[in-house]
Design a protein around this nucleic acid. Structure first.
Lengths: 221, 221
DNA sequence: GTCTATAAAACGATAGAC
DNA sequence: GTCTATCGTTTTATAGAC
C-alpha cells in the first residue's frame, strides 16, 4: 500500500469465503475481462466448487457490481481527499481541535490542489491497477440499474476535477478555453493508466508525480 | 471521413460478403467486446447464416486479427503522415517533381510536428472510434502469434512519438525529464478517446485541435 | 456452507444438401 | 457460397446430499 492512496481492504466483506471470491473475481476480471471469466475460474481461485459461489452471490454480474461500486467509491474518496481546499489536512488524519472547514489559514491554491488530485488519482490507478481495470473497462457488463448507480459516482469524480479547474480559471492561475473538454482530457490521462500499467514499469508514486506535473502544465496560464 | 485522417475503407476485402462480415464484426466487437460477441451476431449483421461466416474466415479470432492488424496499420500511417519532418507535404498528395526527403526548404519544428501528430492521431481515434476500440481494448483476445504481429506496429507508433519529443529536447524547444514516461502519457491522451468518444460529444477535428494544444503544453520548455 | 451431479441453454465450428 | 441441421463442448445456475 502506498502513502498517497487510500488502502483498499476488503475486511467489510464477510464471511471470509465471500471475500476470497471477490478478490479472486477482481484478479480474473482484470486478467481476462468479465465475459471471458467463468464462474468456475472465480470459484477455483477461492478454493471452492462452482456451486459454492451462489451461496454468497446471486450471479456473476452481482459480483462485478460489488467490485465496481466499491472501486468507484474508493477512487472518488482518493480524489476528494487529495483536492481538499483546506491546507495541512492530511487525509485520514483529522485534526482533533477543529473541523477542516473552520481552519483559519488560507486555502490551498488551485494549482496545488490539481497537482495533488491528479497525482493521487494516478497513483491509485497504478497501485490498484487490477481493480481499476475492472472499474474502467467492465461498465458494459453491468445491468442498467447497476450501471446507473456507478455512473452517478463517475459524474461526481468528473465534477471534483472540473471544480478545481474552474477555481483556477477564476483566480487567473489557469488558462482553459474548453473546460469540459480539458477536464475529460486530464481525467483520461489518469484513467488510461489502468490499461497499460504493470508494476515493473514505474512506481505508483513516481508516476503520480509525473502526471501531476503534466496536468498542471496542461492548464497553467 | 475527415480531412485530417486517412480514410478507412475496406474495398480491398473481397468478396463483398467477407467485407460485410468484417464491418459487422467491428461494430459488434466495439459494442460488446470480442468475448461477448457471438458468431451468430456477426453473421446476422451481415445478413447471413452462422455457417456462412466460416467460408470467409476460419475462426472468430481470425476476424479480430484482420480488424486489429488493419486498424493498427491505419493508425500508424496517420501518425507518420502527420509527423513528417518535410514541410508542405500534404499527406496523400505527393509532390510530383521531387521526393519529400530531397526538399530544399527547412524541416518543420518539433512543436509543429508534435501538434500535428497528436491532433491527427486523436481525430482518428474519434472519427474511427469503433475500430479504435477494437484496436485498443481487444488485444488480449488475440493468439500469441497474432498479438506479436500487432505489438510490433504498436512499438512503431510509440517510437514515432518518442522521436519527435527527443527532437524537441535536442533543439531546446521541449523540456522533458522522463522521455519514455511522457511519450506514454501523450499517447494515452489520444488512445483513451476510443474509450469514451461518442459523436455527439465533439467533432473529431475540434477534439484533435484541443489535444494537439494540450500535448504541446505538456512538453514545451 | 460446501460438496457432487446435473439441468437448460448457448457457444464455436462442422456436415452435407443445394 | 449459402443454407439447414447439428455436433460436441462449455456456460450459468440449480437440486439435493451431507
Amino acid at each position: 500500500m502506498s502513502a498517497v492512496t487510500s488502502p483498499l481492504v476488503w475486511e467489510h466483506v464477510q464471511p471470509a469465503a465471500a471475500r476470497r471470491l471477490l478478490t479472486g473475481a477482481i484478479d480474473a476480471f482484470a486478467e481476462r475481462g468479465f465475459q471471458a471469466t467463468t464462474t468456475r475460474d472465480i470459484a477455483s481461485r477461492a478454493g471452492m466448487s462452482p456451486a459454492a459461489l451462489y451461496v454468497h452471490y446471486p450471479s456473476k454480474e452481482r459480483l462485478l457490481f460489488e467490485i465496481s461500486l466499491y472501486g468507484h467509491r474508493a477512487a472518488l474518496e482518493v480524489l476528494r481527499d487529495a483536492g481538499d481546499p483546506a491546507p495541512d489536512d492530511i487525509p485520514g488524519d483529522a485534526a482533533p481541535e477543529s473541523s477542516s472547514s473552520a481552519s483559519v489559514t488560507a486555502d490551498r491554491s488551485p494549482a496545488e490542489r490539481l497537482r495533488a488530485m491528479v497525482s493521487a488519482f494516478t497513483a491509485w490507478h497504478a497501485e490498484h491497477h487490477t481493480i481499476a481495470r475492472v472499474v474502467q473497462y467492465e461498465l458494459a457488463a453491468l445491468t442498467p440499474e447497476h450501471l446507473a448507480e456507478v455512473a452517478a459516482i463517475r459524474r461526481a469524480i468528473s465534477a471534483q476535477l472540473e471544480q478545481v479547474l474552474a477555481d483556477g480559471v477564476d483566480d487567473g492561475s489557469f488558462a482553459v478555453e474548453d473546460l469540459p473538454g480539458t477536464t475529460l482530457a486530464v481525467l483520461s490521462l489518469s484513467i488510461d493508466v489502468a490499461r497499460w500499467y504493470t508494476p515493473h514499469r514505474a512506481k505508483p508514486e513516481d508516476l503520480g508525480t509525473l502526471y501531476g506535473d503534466l496536468a498542471l502544465r496542461m492548464v497553467q496560464a
